[in-house]
Design a protein around this nucleic acid. Structure first.
Lengths: 220, 220
DNA sequence: CCACCTATTTTGATTAGTCAAAATAAGTGT
DNA sequence: ACACTTATTTTGACTAATCAAAATAGGTGG
């Protein structure tokens, strides 16, 4: 059985490769896991020996299908647990990520299936992140962000791709959660400022970096 | 923060001392944790240095109040999780112990409190084991067992003190779960056989060892 | 083409938790 | 008091995961 550390390495390789087939660099992987690069190298070699990922020295890593299967299962646990914490236990949006980081390694497949059924087989978690299904299929639609979309149009937020408690508390307080509707007023790439208008007329100013974390689709 | 291993050592010291103040022997502790005795000795010394328990060399260990506080919190998590798995996720009685062994170390105090509220602040878990409250108070009433109680009387099962899947499946199949009513017909201490009569008239034969795992109170 | 910068890998140590097996302490019985 | 049995402790070694710091491999710019 995969240890907690192994599950975390595989999960982060999956997240960093964004579904695609590109190599994930050691630096990015070590950064995501909050370990020094040498530690990541050592672990990656062990995982490559186990056949869970492919290591191209000095270039990066890529999941094998076995590694990908495990990673998707961990991600499914993470996102279903988050959904459970918000929907059933009424926990705050901004806190569930940290909780799920722990629980994703302790939830069995049987409990997972029952949670899934209890929640009505949700397709997205509370942040709008897609939940892989049992077979490991994951919805990987590409969306525009508030930093890249057309201005003026009416939009709906579909996803907030940032897990930090502070950011999510800010988003919550500003009404920026999945499902909310708004439009982009101005976007000034020189000053790096994006101005939003909510349906209730309220205006919000945001930096481009933050705006890039919020994925949207045209309404309707 | 206490590691998983530390939490398990403290929990088992608590369970083996049965609430009382007696010393727990190294052999019993090592057995409960499924480690060799030398491992238990090493760990116990470290825990004594941390002030979580008191080690009387060659005699045994006893929790300090700090250690006891942690152990009770773990036990509370274990038993509330078991209750959640049975009540909310409708899992089989016989399987929830193993699941809870994992989850008890991953559930935060906040999630714990919300689970407790969701379940309506239960006093017992599905096996009838008392659930410590937030303050660490635990109901420690002493009950008779089917191996020691008076014969002929009408009884109610209050608790089944055995976690193995096989035993619990047998108990379930025989209608021996908390709340069930029955009486002890004969008890033959020579052959080690106990005969039970259920309310529906069905008769069940049981060895004394098994009968000793089932706690009862006089009905009414 | 060579020196330099940066990412990666190597090397050597450390910590937590464990086992196997040898050493020791504490009764127990004769 | 002595030999025995049995529980406990000690010792030495191992694994997984980590860090710090030195070594190395690739580009990149002049």
């Amino acid at each position: 059985m995969a240890t907690v550390a192994v599950e975390n390495y595989l999960k982060h390789v999956l997240l960093l490769s964004e579904g695609g087939e590109e190599l994930v660099s050691m630096g990015d992987l070590a950064g995501a896991l909050a370990v020094v690069p040498g530690t990541a190298t050592a672990m990656v070699k062990a995982l490559a020996d186990e056949g869970l990922l492919e290591h191209q020295p000095r270039l990066g890593v890529r999941l094998t299908s076995r590694g990908r299967r495990i990673a998707l299962n961990v991600l499914r646990k993470h996102r279903l647990v988050e959904t459970f914490l918000v929907e059933t236990l009424k926990m705050d949006w901004s806190k569930v990520h940290a909780e799920a980081e722990q629980l994703e390694h302790a939830v069995s497949d049987e409990v997972l299936d029952r949670l899934d059924a209890l929640l009505g087989h949700p397709r997205q978690d509370p942040h709008g992140d897609p939940i892989p299904n049992r077979a490991g299929k994951i919805d990987s639609q590409v969306y525009a962000t508030l930093a890249t979309c057309a201005t003026g149009r009416r939009l709906r937020i579909v996803r907030v791709t940032e897990q930090s408690e502070e950011f999510l508390r800010f988003a919550e307080d500003s009404g920026l959660r999945p499902g909310a509707e708004l439009s982009v007023g101005e976007r000034n790439l020189v000053s790096g400022l994006v101005t939003l208008t909510r349906t209730d007329g309220g205006k919000i100013a945001l930096g481009v970096a933050a705006a890039g974390k919020i994925l949207v689709e045209p309404r309707g």
